[in-house]
């Protein structure tokens, strides 16, 4: 079964207050539950803010380490889910559910070679 990466695109900045975040987290948990029930869920994770990221580049024999995310932007991937879906329409249907629950844009991208 083909797999798709659903990335949540999150604006940088402070975490929303609990009264905003809690209902969102509940909705997200409900979507994850539906994915599990449908046998579509493979893996999901939330990420710490992009400023906690570190980039490593190989430079000949050496490595170059820099502070912060790779791309300089005002939004970064804040979490992701991997789902199994028959085709793009099925994957986009999950994408819509995640977007509705999180109120964030979701990038839906096919995983190469069926995840192998």
């Amino acid at each position: 079964m083909p797999q798709y990466l659903l990335s949540l695109i999150q604006p940088d900045g402070p975490v929303p207050p609990p009264e905003v975040l809690e209902p969102i987290m509940r909705d997200v948990a409900a979507v994850t539950e539906r994915m599990r029930a449908a046998g579509a869920w493979v893996f999901s994770a939330g990420l710490h803010p992009a400023e906690t990221a570190t980039v490593v580049r190989s430079a000949g024999e050496d490595f170059l380490v820099t502070d912060g995310p790779y791309a300089e932007a005002k939004e970064h991937v804040g979490g992701f889910t991997i789902v199994e879906a028959e085709d793009l329409d099925a994957a986009l249907a999950w994408g819509r559910e995640v977007a509705r629950a999180t109120t964030l844009p979701v990038e839906v991208r096919p995983i190469a070679n069926g995840g192998v």
Partner: peptide
């Protein structure tokens, strides 16, 4: 092909 856009009537 890669994203598997389906070949069907919605």
């Amino acid at each position: 092909r890669d994203a598997r856009i389906p070949y069907r009537v919605p």
